[in-house]
Nucleic acid binder design. Structure first.
Length: 489
RNA sequence: GGCGGCAUAGCCAAGUGGUAAGGCAGCGGUCUGCAAAACCGCCAUUCUCCGGUUCAAAUCCGGAUGCCGCCUCCA
């Protein structure tokens, strides 16, 4: 492997050189959603950043097996089912479908395996049995099964806390049947009317943490290379998952733990409990999915990311700039005559240099924010060169323009942005903006035609009047040799 | 209360020991009938504050202030 990828490992609290267990094979598991509601931008961020990591690891030559689960049984799903008066299965099905709709629009690749908890009950039960045999699990008279946290050495090392601190936190109310307030449920007995599966401890359902332990082992084996999720999952979810798995299998569970930072609104975490979340579908009704995706990558994945409409609009301008440059290059390249020109090898050098830096940025803990900086350096270079007539018309220029396009394509495939047809993007963006500003494109077109005929008859007073009329609508008219075009200012 | 993170220009943001990437906005210029886009130039002697280590610190150490997160379901 040529690239040395550094990954910040939550376990060690530092960046480490990424060395997979099996030379170029990467086994990666990321916690997916609990399917009980529409996804918000926080889910989008997590899903996008891990999608980019998978894409980048593949890009540098790793053979990645990627597993992302769906939690399709859980208290929140049961509650939602009661609210909506449908079954838990229907709730999960509905929101898993919604997940795919949203994530497909965001260009998220499907994982290699997308297991669901309810189809792995058997695996979970046997895992509990192993834990019971080893003395890590104990059933209670009412049919719950708990994990004996104190028996687990090193419990708390992932999330950086120790058992005594957790104990003294005093917020954990002792429940009668637990031996210790810190113990967590592996199996929950069901109340009448709740979804339930048969088990040696009576009818019930699995605890939340258990599914990831069972399914990751089943599809990746233990230990595996990377386990990811949102920062809020580090404790208790991942801590408990790790405890279970290491207790059951008697070896290390995961080598690199990756946690992404939160999306914030007004400097506060966006979350269900604060009720300050914005769903992906709400945003996408007025913002292009490529823009949202780009926005989510403009900050390093571990830092908090503040959300606001203004930031989204800035991202929109940035994405527009890149696509405009692509459009320019494609237009130049559609010409058929190329002349012998001067030597532009220094430009190729510049491109190589930018590409090298881009790779270094991505190697350094997937620093998309820095990498995007280099993308803009490349855009400026492209535009600058395209200004030069002799460059534009020369064979050497043609080759360089092609080279730049293929670099953008390569980066676009990693970022999942700038990898689509650019005219399609520009058209979609324009119509979105029409909808947003409540503008009728037909009206704009007729005003432009009026202005064109005014210009033809050199009536610049009328032409300028029409220009400012359009400007008041937020429309900018661009006169070009091949006719007038328009876009939003 | 315990543990952890962050603080960089008007705004967003990268940068963990070698002298401040990039984007948005703004200003001047080229181009244009006028514009827009694009390009060129300008835009932080300085990185919350105070002390320390060092030849050298936004980067390391100590302290202060502010903001945020986890400790309970949460990406």
């Amino acid at each position: 492997m040529e690239n040395i990828v550094l990954i910040y490992n939550t376990l060690s609290r530092q960046k480490e050189e990424f060395i997979p267990l099996e030379n170029n094979v990467v086994k990666m598991y990321v916690c997916g959603i609990t399917a009980y509601d529409y996804c918000h931008i926080g889910h989008a961020r997590s899903t996008v950043v891990f999608d980019v990591m998978v894409r980048y690891l593949r890009h540098v030559g790793y053979n990645v097996t990627f597993v992302r689960n769906f939690t399709d049984i859980d208290d929140k799903i049961i509650n939602r089912a009661n609210e909506e008066n449908i079954s838990s299965e229907q709730v999960a099905e509905k929101y898993i479908r919604a997940f795919y709709e949203d994530m497909d629009r965001l260009g998220i690749l499907r994982a290699d395996v997308e297991p669901r908890a309810t189809t792995h009950i058997r695996e979970m039960i046997s895992l509990i049995q192993v834990l019971e045999r080893k003395g890590f699990a104990y059933p209670t008279p009412s049919g719950d099964v708990y994990f004996r946290v104190r028996k687990m050495e090193n419990y708390g090392r992932l999330s950086g806390r120790n058992i005594e601190e957790l104990q003294s936190g005093g917020r954990v109310a002792p429940e009668e049947e637990k031996e210790d307030p810190l113990d967590f449920a592996l199996w929950k007995s069901s109340k009448p009317g709740e979804p339930a599966w048969e088990s040696p401890w009576g009818d019930g359902r699995p605890g939340w943490h258990l599914e990831c332990s069972a399914m990751s082992e089943k599809y990746l084996g233990i230990p595996f290379d990377i386990h990811g999720g949102g920062q809020d999952l580090a404790f208790p979810h991942h801590e408990n998952e790790m405890a279970q798995s290491e207790a059951a299998f008697g070896k290390q569970f995961v080598r690199y733990w990756i946690h992404n930072g939160f999306v914030r609104v007004n400097s506060e975490k966006m979350s269900k409990s604060l009720d300050n979340f914005i769903t992906i579908r709400d945003i996408l009704s007025g913002v292009h999915p490529q823009v949202l995706r780009f926005f989510l990558l403009t900050k390093h994945y571990r830092s908090p990311l503040d959300y606001s409409t203004q930031y989204l609009l800035e991202a929109e301008k940035a994405v527009h700039r890149v696509y405009s440059t692509i459009a320019l290059l494609e237009k130049e390249l559609s010409k058929s005559k190329w002349s012998q020109g001067q030597d532009y090898s220094h430009v190729e050098q510049d491109i190589q240099d930018i590409v090298r830096k881009w790779n270094q940025a991505m190697d350094d803990d997937f620093n998309t924010a820095e990498a995007i900086g280099y993308l803009f350096s490349l855009m400026r270079l492209a535009n600058r060169m395209a200004e030069e007539k002799s460059f534009r018309k020369s064979e050497a220029g043609r080759q360089i323009m092609n080279q730049i396009l293929s670099v953008i394509k390569e980066w676009g495939d990693v970022l999942g942005v700038f990898n689509g047809p650019c005219n399609e993007f520009l058209d979609e963006l324009k119509s979105l903006r029409c909808v947003r500003s409540n503008i009728d494109p037909g009206l704009v077109q007729s005003l432009i035609e009026k202005r064109q005929s005014a210009r033809k008859s050199k009536d610049f007073v009328l032409a300028d009047k029409l220009r400012s009329e359009l400007a008041e609508m937020g429309i900018e008219v661009m006169d070009a040799p091949d006719g007038a075009k328009w876009d939003f200012a």
